[in-house]
């Protein structure tokens, strides 16, 4: 194989610039290190509060309790950020990836074998998140990896699913989260507060929907263009070559 040189042509910045910036960064690092050094070596933070209320949260893994119960605003807004990033990528039009007509039998077999395992593992991580490390984000990322594997194998979403069905799954996590959050407002509770006896089931329901949404969103981010737009219609970039 030919040796590939992918060097970019970039002029090395002058010694003066590098030195000045280096000294500035060193001063920044030193002052930050001093700030961390002067903090107390023992600090409980919020761990006592987290541990005290974990029975009421519906799950026994403290991180999942924080993510889906105590600070569920974060998770809710995070799902929104993910959607916004996806809309940003879609609005850029995207470059249609070159499709090779050649199907590699090894890759084909590997993806047929691995994708079901990924989906199974994603479900496992979702379930285990209630009482051990795991949860919606990790499960969603594994699901996205399955999607990436399929896209790398030139798999295409069928057109009948790429319109409404795709968008429905993309917003499912966010919509369900908000719906459940608001649902209990009418039962004399604040937004995103769940009754303790129902919390476990509700968290699992929200997490399942969030896993689907996160997984599909991340995989769509990798694809880089709206699958419902025809791949051969190139968007005019406005530049005359």
């Amino acid at each position: 194989m030919r040796k590939i040189k992918l060097k970019i042509l970039e002029k090395k910045p002058s010694l003066f610039t590098r030195l000045t910036l280096g000294i500035l960064m060193f001063l920044l690092a030193a002052s930050l290190a001093y700030a961390v050094w002067s903090l107390p070596t023992q600090a409980l933070g919020l761990s006592a509060e987290v541990a005290k209320n974990v029975e009421m949260s519906g799950v026994s893994n403290p991180v999942t309790a924080v993510l889906l119960n105590y600070r569920s605003y974060d998770t809710l807004l995070e799902l929104g950020v993910l959607l916004l990033a996806l809309f940003g990528v879609w609005s850029l039009g995207g470059v249609s990836a070159n499709k090779s007509s050649f199907v590699n039998p090894i890759l084909d077999f590997l993806s047929r074998f691995l994708v079901p395992v990924f989906i199974l593992f994603s479900g496992y991580l979702l379930w285990v998140g209630g009482f051990a490390p795991g949860g919606a984000f990790q499960a969603g990322a594994v699901l996205a990896a399955a999607g990436v594997l399929l896209f790398l194998n030139d798999w295409q979403l069928e057109r009948k699913y790429s319109g409404f069905s795709l968008r429905f799954v993309l917003v499912l996590g966010l919509v369900l989260f908000v719906a459940i959050g608001f649902g209990f407002v009418f039962l004399d509770r604040v937004f995103l507060e769940y009754p303790p006896q129902l919390a476990g089931g509700l968290i699992l329901l929200i997490e399942a929907a969030a896993t689907l949404s996160i997984g599909i969103s991340l995989a769509a981010l990798f694809l880089g263009r709206d699958p419902s737009v025809k791949s051969d219609s190139k968007i005019d970039t406005g530049v005359h070559k």
Binding site: V36, L39, P40, T41, Q42, A43, L44, G45, L46, S47, V50, A51, P62, V63, A65, V66, L67, Y70, R71, D74, T75, E78, V81, L82, A85, L86, V89, G135, F137, G140, A141, I214, S217, L218, L221, F222, G224
Partner: peptide
């Protein structure tokens, strides 16, 4: 900084924020 709890379980709040941050970082990267 969340691990400064000695022998006790580390503070879960920064952990949750970092997990959220990692997912946001990857979508921002994309």
């Amino acid at each position: 900084l969340a691990a400064r709890t000695g022998d006790a379980v580390p503070d879960a709040v920064p952990h949750a924020m970092v997990i959220t941050g990692i997912v946001v970082a990857v979508s921002a990267t994309a």
